[in-house]
């Protein structure tokens, strides 16, 4: 973990409420895909945890959805610096992927899949990706995954683009050796039930510190209590306990 200042070099909308921000700074602590950064914003007490979409040299890319005061404030930033804690969380383990892993991202669960796909492709894996959205106007990053060389399927709940339905509807038609996913909890639960192999899930929770000190984001797992921020956000399928 490291605390440092990042310079905002780009902050552009991808859809009506999803923004892409590129930041320049010390990215040395960001090693695994699926980890996150924690951003300090003026006038707000708690930092805002946001998943890492990509790291390229000293440039960090984050993609965030504008959902409240913090992200509304971030949307307005065109330049300046941000106080960022980097290298947080336990990310995806690519060593378990097998030859042809499947990546499933739902909504703002899509961004962490990008760095993961890039890593897996670099390791010589054949990567299939399913990106789930509600409707066509909410889709982002489809072309980015295609450019990496992934086999990309897009699903929309209303059928306005790609396969009509949920990511699990597209999952049935793909052969995969292992899977990785990030998205809203109902989606994760559906994947847990529908999946034919083992896999890794990234969870979301309201956090206090983001680095394991406050126990604000604990969950129960098969192997004991885990902190989403420190022991997660990525958990293995076998250790997940659904509470409701």
């Amino acid at each position: 973990m490291k605390q440092s200042l990042f310079e905002i070099i780009e902050n552009i909308p991808l859809t009506a409420d999803v923004m892409k921000m590129r930041l320049k700074g010390d990215t040395s602590e960001i090693t695994a895909p699926g980890t996150f950064v924690n951003v300090k914003l003026d006038g707000l007490f708690l930092r805002r945890p946001i998943s890492v979409c990509d790291v390229e040299g000293d440039v960090l890319t984050i993609i965030y959805k504008v959902v409240g005061r913090g992200t509304e404030q971030m949307r307005e930033m065109q330049n300046g610096t941000l106080d960022v804690l980097t290298g947080l969380g336990n990310g995806y383990d690519t060593s378990k992927s097998g030859a042809s892993p499947l990546l499933l991202g739902g909504g703002v669960g899509v961004p962490p899949m990008y760095m993961l796909a890039k890593r897996l492709i670099a390791e010589g894996k054949k990567v299939s990706v399913i990106l789930g959205f509600n409707k066509e106007s909410e889709i982002f990053c489809e072309d980015d995954f295609k450019a990496l060389g992934c086999d990309v399927t897009v699903t929309t709940v209303d059928g306005s683009y790609g396969v009509k339905g949920f990511v699990t509807d597209a999952m049935k038609n793909i052969d995969y050796t292992y899977f990785y996913t990030c998205g809203p909890e109902p989606m994760l639960k559906a994947i847990y039930k529908a999946s034919a192999t083992s896999g890794q899930f990234s969870f979301e929770e309201r956090m206090g510190c983001g680095f394991g000190a406050c126990m604000g984001c604990s969950c129960k797992t098969v192997t004991g209590y885990k902190r989403i921020c420190k022991d997660g956000p990525v958990l293995e399928k076998e250790e997940i306990l659904w509470e409701n």
Binding site: L44, F45, L46, E205, R206, M207, G208, C214, M215, G216, C217, S218, C219
Partner: peptide, 15 residues
């Protein structure tokens, strides 16, 4: 969970 809430100049926890 949730155990944490943001406030003006502070936070609420119910760990």
């Amino acid at each position: 969970t949730p155990r944490i809430a943001e406030c003006y100049a502070g936070m609420i926890n119910a760990v």
